[in-house]
Every structure is written in structure tokens, then in C-alpha cells.
Write a protein that binds this DNA or RNA. Structure first.
Lengths: 358, 358
DNA sequence: AACCGTTATGACATCGGTGTCATGACATCG
DNA sequence: CGATGTCATGACACCGATGTCATAACGGTT
């Protein structure tokens, strides 16, 4: 590997001048610059970030801790889409000329301190902590040296965080359903201990309240368990109870559940959307777009969350915090309206609409 | 940040002794070790990997280039599961006490040289290049300094690579179908220009040949286009042609396509699996397990491929190549047999089997 | 007692960049 | 014409580890 000294020798200048050409932090004569640049090209010189980091204390690395990669099998509910979080963050970070160092908690909190240690070794400039689903976390070890942003999770210490706007998105979806003529709206919820469950039910209720539609609690049933045991029977029973309350549309806690509901409804000979409308949550394209009919779903804006979090972190690192920037940011996603929801009024032409609403 | 000098001062020893305690590469008196260790704990000392890298030329970093993260929207066909590749590799690499540096090509080959440059800066010890789907690549820039392993792709220079055994897996699936009494096996294939298409059709034919079942080419129809344009109509027509050839089972090129076929068959009033069996490819759990009935599918063993590739790379780095280790390794996945395939003989008790075959 | 081998430790140089400061060549100004 | 300022460049130390070599203490041999 060529070093800055080799380049300097070939170009007939001092190493410091080469450094100046590389970094552009001081004026360099045009001719000198040219000589240096051709020497760099000739030697295929690449500066060592180790040496640079040592001197300047800036590694150009951002650490990310995630269960998104390894835990997918365990937290089946979370599924894969949270990888979009990584994508969103990666994009912003690459744009700032930094590189993402990814470590994986393996789904266990015990591993986290070791990962933070690794990050410290590599002198990362900041850390993104990504959770598999919207929840509270308790990071035992402090990480005071450098900034950290929590993504898809929050703690009680007021660490800056970025969260999905569950309440708002569910509100938008149910509000849209009501505006489309539905008033008996079934809801197969997440397990109650999930933060997202509470928030979304709040949104569901607010949509009813603001539209002056009463809520029948019979229409709300828990549709999933935290562990996958007997999930299928549970859903069957929950769907049964919801159907007895005579809804015209069934909201599901996620697209995966909606996919199952498609199968169950068809087994009962109920056609979608003619006899029953169905909506999901997550807007997990792989499912929502390819089910037949296409599934209406509220987007869980993972990519946007990742980008926002990375942005926030970079601002914390550079110290250019926005005035009045809140510790905790909510990110909203749109509702993707597809054919699984039928508009219940005279005008049937809009039945096969396929568009997105903000 | 505390340095090794701070620790040395507190422990009353030389920095070199602290280094010895950290690395255990030379004997240290028990009492001295104790003093050093408590000093380390007191200062919360973490060694700087930058300094270590500079001196020893070993960064402890493995680079990974992937489109898996950012390209998911573009190569919709590839979908998300290739993130399991990252997972598999990550696990092996973490186990070797190294850290994964992830860069993203953004789905464009033009970005790759810049990423390799970044990796060179960080002195990565090796590189994994991951493709979004099984294909040939042409890496313009050479990367001779350090080892590289291609994953899910191959080149003509004979760079070491790890590939899915498409032929073998499709063979196993079709062979299993024939053993379950099917002899007219429809197949909605990938676009023909894909490597995976050719290989899988080879497997399909070999299964027929080895079981003495003739192949009716009418049963083979292209079910997807490389671009998503009009994909739905194409699939409809292809399915139509396949059905005219009177199959008892329809193999789909991937689970996503199978999910659509579920919808299309149901629209025609064809019940699965009573009137028609269906099989997919990928064993994309999110879909295969939650469709109703559960979808039989050949696993695309992404996690295993990632692990194998990382393993191969680590061996190349340490120079402990296995004797006769091939440049190119094929990884096979099992077939997951679920309810979507019906056994066509007197014994109907096995209809609701739910097990996996090797 | 002189010699040797082992154990335990430290002094010092070094990896490859960059921050600091000094220096020389010019141009500009009063 | 001397003073001042700007531009361009180099000398040198330093970041924080570790490899090399030297050294000291100690126990056992001949």
C-alpha cells in the first residue's frame, strides 16, 4: 500500500503538501497540485483512515445497533421491513461522507454493551439504536461520550428518538374509511402490551369521535399474540367475534394478519371487497401490492424514519441543532388506498381506484 | 477518552505492560495484571482501534457491498429476503471478532469503485460483494490487495463465489411433486434471461427425466417480466395457457407470484389444494407461512449462503484454505412442504402434513 | 562462583497521516 | 524603499497503540 510519503517523493514535494491537496484545506499552486494528483493516480494511493483518525479524532464512522438483521426469525411480527430503516439511514449517512458500521444485537439486549465497546474502539462519531418494533428500551450502559439517537424506540432518560406516528396513521386510515361511507369498522388489534396497539386504538377512536360515529367495542378484538403459539386459532376466533358485530370493513393490525384474513374470509365464502372491505397496516409492499385485490394499508414509514434519525444524529454530531428541535420526533406515513376497500355510496365508479393519499 | 498511557500511569507500569495485559501475548505477573485491570476499569479505558490498526495493519473490519439495502424498491423481484444474506454473514463475522462495514451500491454499479475506495481507506481485511439476485457481474475495478468473495453472483475471472443451487432445489421440489403422484406439473417461470430461470428449468426437466415422466412444454410458461410493467396481465395470460395444458399442480417462480396465483385461481373458483396444488420458490416465510393454505416452497438459502461466504472469506484472509476448496460453492436449501400441495393417491391422511424435507 | 534459562518489565522506534509554526517569495502600500 | 500582507511550502512533533530489543531478578546447574 502506497503511503503519503511515497506520493510526496514522486511528486517532489513534502508529505504535508500532499495532505493539503487531498483535503483542500490550504491553497496549493496549480502546477504542484497537478504533480501531486498524477502521483496519487500513478500509485493508486488511498489515505489510511486509521492514521487520519488517530491524528484528527474523526473516524468518519457512524455506528448502528440493530436487531433488524439477525432477529427477524424471532420477532416474526416485526418482520423484515425494518431493514428499510437501515436503508433510509444509510442513504443520509453516505451523503455526509461517512460510513455505516453495523453491529447486530442478535435480538438480545445483553450483547449491546459489547457492541458499544466495539464502537468506542472504532471511535464512531455517533450511534443509532434501532429497535425491531415500537417500544420502550432501557439501555443499561451509559453512552455519554458521543451522541446517540434511538429509532423506533424511546427511553425514560429523554434520549433523542424518532418514532412512527401510530396514532396519526391509524386515525388517517379510519377517518378515510368513515369518509368512504363505513361506520361499523372492525379492528383486529396487536397484542395489548404493545405501545403501537394502544396508540393505534387511540387513533381509531379519535377518528370516530371527530366524525361523530359511535364506537362499538365489540368491533375491537385482539388478533395476535406476542408469541406465535396458536396464533392461527386466535385469529380465527377473533375474526368470528368481529364478524358477529356486523362490520362493513375489517382493519388488521398488520399486512401479514390481513393476508390471513383474506384466506379466512374466502374460506367462509365472503368476497373482498364486495361483501367485506379489508385494510392492513405497514404497507408492506411485497404483500399489499400482490394480494388480490390489492390491500389498503397505512404505511409504516421506516425509510423516512431512518433518514430522519440519521439526519438528527448528524446534526447532534456537528452541534448544529435546530432551534427548538424536539427530543422526540414523530414520523407520519401516508395511507395507500387499494382495491380491498370499497366505497359505500351510490358512486361505484371509484371502486377500482388505485391511488395514494397523503 | 482515556489512553493506554493514562492506564499505565494509574497502574504504575509502562504502557507496554498494559498492552500485554490487553492482548495476553506475554506473561504478566498476577499482581501487576490486577493493578492494570482495575486501572482499566476505573478509567473505562477502551483501546483505539485506529492506533492499533496503524501499527499492526489489521483493522478487524470486513467490508460488504450490497444493493440489498437500498435497491429493494427497484428490483422488486428480488424483494427483501436477501437481507438474510447480511444476517448470515454478520453472524459468522461477529463470531470471528471482526466488525462488518456495510456500504450500499444504491443499486447502481457506478458507485462500486467509490465504495471499494472507502473500504481501502478503512483497511478492510476482505470484501463480500452481494448481488440482489443470482447473476453474472463484471467488476471493472480490480481489487487485488485483499481477498473478495462474491455472493449470489459470479464473474468470468474466477473470483471465489457462493451461489444458490437453483437446479438442485427445483429438482427436489418437482421430484417431490412427482413422488406425490403429480405428473402434469405446470411451471410459471422467471423471465428467461435470468440465470436462475435456466437452472431451475433444468432441474424441472431432470426431475421428469429421472422419474420417467415426459415433459409437455405447454406446461412451461414465462410468468414474469424483468420490469414490473403489466406484470399482472402477463401472469393472467400465462396462467391461462398453463391451465389449458391441464396440470394438477402449478409451480411458481417465486412466492410473490404464487400469492398472485392464489388470488387468480380463487377468482376462477378453483380451490387450493383440492382442485389445484400450488408451489412457490424462495420459502419467503412472511408469505409462505401466512397464506391460506400454507404454501409449499423451495427455500432460497440466503442465510446459509451469507454464512458460507463469510466463512470462505475468513479462510482466505487467514490463508487457511481448505484443500481442494472449490472457487465456487453451491448452497442447497430444503423444500418446505405445506398444505398447498395435495398428495394424489388413495392415502389422504397426509393431506394436512406440515413438515420439512431435507 | 560463574553460567544459563526463564520470567517480568521497560525504553524506544514506528505505523501514516495532520496540526502548528516557520520560512521564503512576491505583491502592495504608505 | 522599507514595512506589511498574502501565498505556497516544508520541518517537526504528535496522535495511541505495538514490535523489537535490552535489562533485571531469580532459580537451578555444573
Amino acid at each position: 500500500m502506497a503511503t503519503i510519503y511515497d506520493v510526496a517523493k514522486i511528486a517532489g514535494v513534502s508529505p504535508k503538501t500532499v495532505s493539503r491537496v487531498m483535503n483542500g484545506d490550504a491553497p496549493v499552486n496549480a502546477k504542484t497540485r497537478e504533480a501531486v494528483e498524477s502521483a496519487i493516480a500513478a500509485l493508486n494511493y488511498v489515505p489510511s483512515s486509521a492514521a487520519r483518525t488517530m491524528r484528527s479524532q474523526r473516524s468518519g464512522l457512524i455506528g448502528m445497533i440493530t436487531g433488524a438483521i439477525s432477529s427477524s426469525h424471532q420477532f416474526e411480527d416485526a418482520g423484515l421491513p425494518e431493514i428499510y430503516l437501515v436503508q433510509g439511514a444509510q442513504r443520509v449517512i453516505a451523503h455526509s461522507n461517512r460510513t455505516l458500521l453495523i453491529a447486530d444485537s442478535g435480538g438480545h439486549a445483553d450483547g449491546v454493551p459489547a457492541l458499544l465497546q466495539t464502537f468506542r474502539e472504532h471511535q464512531v462519531e455517533g450511534v443509532l439504536f434501532v429497535a425491531e418494533y415500537h417500544r420502550e428500551v432501557r439501555l443499561t450502559e451509559g453512552w455519554k461520550d458521543r451522541p446517540m439517537v434511538l429509532v423506533n424506540c424511546f427511553d425514560r432518560q429523554g434520549t433523542p428518538c424518532v418514532l412512527p406516528d401510530d396514532e396519526g396513521a391509524q386515525f388517517a386510515l379510519v377517518d378515510g374509511l368513515i369518509k368512504r361511507g363505513h361506520s361499523r369498522i372492525g379492528y383486529l388489534t396487536l397484542p395489548e402490551q404493545y405501545v403501537a396497539c394502544t396508540l393505534r386504538v387511540d387513533g381509531y377512536r379519535r377518528a370516530h369521535r371527530e366524525n361523530g360515529v359511535p364506537v362499538d367495542d365489540q368491533l375491537l378484538q385482539v388478533g395476535a399474540l406476542p408469541s406465535a403459539t396458536n396464533e392461527f386459532d386466535l385469529l380465527w376466533d377473533a375474526l368470528d367475534r368481529v364478524l358477529r358485530a356486523e362490520p362493513t370493513v375489517i382493519c388488521c393490525a398488520n399486512d401479514k394478519m390481513a393476508m390471513r384474513v383474506y384466506g379466512l374470509l374466502r374460506e367462509r365464502g365472503v368476497s373482498i371487497p364486495q361483501q367485506m372491505s379489508v385494510a392492513g397496516y405497514d404497507d408492506y409492499r411485497m404483500i399489499a401490492e400482490h394480494l388480490h385485490p390489492g390491500l389498503t394499508s397505512a404505511e409504516l414509514p421506516y425509510a423516512a424514519m431512518g433518514a430522519r434519525a440519521a439526519d438528527k444524529l448528524l446534526r447532534l454530531i456537528s452541534g448544529t441543532t435546530k432551534p427548538n428541535e424536539p427530543e422526540c420526533e414523530l414520523v407520519s406515513g401516508p395511507v395507500a388506498w387499494r382495491e380491498s376497500v370499497r366505497t359505500r355510496d351510490a358512486n361505484v365508479t371509484s371502486l377500482h381506484q388505485r391511488r395514494r393519499e397523503p
